Simulated scan of single mutants.
Amino acid sequence: MPAIGFLGAGHLAGYLLRGFLRAGVPAGDMTVSRRGMGPELAARHGVNLAADNQRLADGCDVLFLAVRPAQAVAALEDVRLRSDQIVVSVCAGVPLGRLAAAAGPATVVRAMPVSAVAIGTGALPLYPDEPRARALLARLGPVLGLASETDFETATATAALYGWVHDLIAVTAGWLTERGLDPATARMLAARTFAAAAGMVEDEPETPVGDLVARLTTPGGITALGLGILADRGVPKSLAAALDAVDAKLRGKSPD
């Protein structure tokens, strides 16, 4: 098992730590930066706490770069890396070329995990599809190796969608609670409904999702009623516009 370091110790680093521990990676094989939430994460999970960032870099084989995107290049420039090391950047919107220039001889890849890596679910976009990085990330969930950085940026937009789905679950649970369900039941029902839909889509990979929707949409039925209202109020177009705006931000462009 490679020694894993986390340069940047915020919430995403915490989710990654939880995921690796859940997958059986020994706590002693992981080290976190002393800055930010590092001391808290080390105490909570029993992982190592680095004396400083250079010692963190010196002691790891794989370095997860988990700082804020604006700090990513400077954080890499602040440490000396070796040619046998891999840097896995989870900083949205920071191009591979800039990261590689700052990382010196180390190999750099980009990945975009979401908080669900803590429980072993959620796909992980990866570019480039480096075998050692893929093998490590596969402990956290399905890895989707992408052919280009353009494809990677497109896939990264789903990290924002992941947050929006949480909000949709909250709205649905709130609606159910307002109509008399107890909050725990409402929360479970809303969450399981979204999870069930995702499970069916995954279970029939050869079936177009539109066909799955059509099966559920009986003319004059409640699904058709709701879809019609959502379409009339521009929800599908609004979702596409939100994804377009995220995509533009990731590519350093101004949203239209």
Results as ranks from 00 to 15, higher is better:
Arg134Leu: 01
Arg139Val: 04
Val213Lys: 05
Pro142Asp: 04
Arg179Asn: 13
Trp164His: 10
Arg134Val: 00
Arg215Met: 11
Gly234Met: 05
Gly226Arg: 14
Ala155Lys: 04
Ala195Gln: 15
Gly141Met: 06
Thr217Ser: 15
Ala147Leu: 07
Ala147Asp: 14
Asp151Leu: 08
Arg132His: 11
Glu202Lys: 03
Leu181Tyr: 05
Glu206Met: 10
Leu216Ser: 12
Pro142Cys: 02
Leu136Ile: 12
Pro142Met: 02
Arg192Cys: 00
Glu206Lys: 10
Tyr162His: 11
Thr121Ser: 11
Trp175Phe: 10
Asp167Gly: 00
Glu204Ile: 01
Leu168His: 11
Tyr127Arg: 00
Ala224Glu: 15
Ala214Asp: 14
Glu153Ser: 03
Asp203Gly: 12
Glu153Met: 03
Asp151Lys: 01
Ala224Trp: 03
Ala198His: 05
Pro236Thr: 06
Thr121Leu: 12
Ala184Thr: 08
Thr121Lys: 14
Trp164Leu: 14
Met200Phe: 11
Pro205Ser: 09
Gly120Ser: 08
Thr217Cys: 13
Thr154Met: 02
Gly220Met: 11
Asp167Tyr: 01
Pro183Trp: 11
Ala186Gly: 04
Gly226Tyr: 14
Thr172Lys: 03
Leu239Arg: 03
Gly210Trp: 07
Leu146Thr: 05
Asp167Phe: 02
Leu176Ser: 07
Asp151Cys: 02
Ile229Cys: 01
Ala186Met: 08
Thr177Lys: 06
Ala135Tyr: 06
Thr177Ile: 03
Tyr127Trp: 13
Asp151Met: 07
Ala197Thr: 14
Val143Pro: 06
Leu161His: 08
Leu124Arg: 06
Glu206Ser: 15
Pro205Trp: 10
Leu227Ser: 07
Asp232Trp: 00
Leu126Val: 03
Tyr127Phe: 15
Asp203Ala: 15
Leu168Pro: 04
Gly163Ala: 02
Leu146Val: 04
Ala157Ser: 15
Leu230Pro: 03
Glu206Gln: 14
Trp175Glu: 13
Gly199Ser: 10
Trp164Lys: 02
Arg187Glu: 11
Gly234Ser: 03
Ala198Leu: 11
Val165Pro: 07
Glu149Trp: 09
Ala197Glu: 09
Ala190Met: 10
Gly122Ile: 08
Glu153Cys: 02
Arg233His: 10
Gly174Lys: 10
Met200Glu: 14
Leu212Asp: 12
Leu140Phe: 02
Ile222Met: 13
Thr154Tyr: 02
Glu153Gln: 08
Gly199His: 08
Leu126His: 04
Leu140Ile: 01
Leu227Cys: 07
Thr154Cys: 01
Arg233Glu: 02
Ile169Glu: 09
Gly145Cys: 03
Ala138Leu: 02
Ala170Thr: 06
Leu189Met: 14
Ala155Trp: 07
Met200Gln: 13
Leu225Arg: 15
Thr158Ala: 09
Arg233Asp: 00
Glu202Leu: 05
Arg233Met: 00
Leu137Arg: 13
Tyr127His: 15
Ala186Asn: 04
Gly210Leu: 04
Leu216Tyr: 08
Arg215His: 12
Asp232Gln: 13
Leu124Ser: 05
Leu137His: 10
Ala186Val: 02
Arg192Glu: 11
Gly221Ile: 09
Pro205Arg: 10
Asp232Asn: 03
Ala240Arg: 01
Arg187Phe: 02
Ala198Tyr: 07
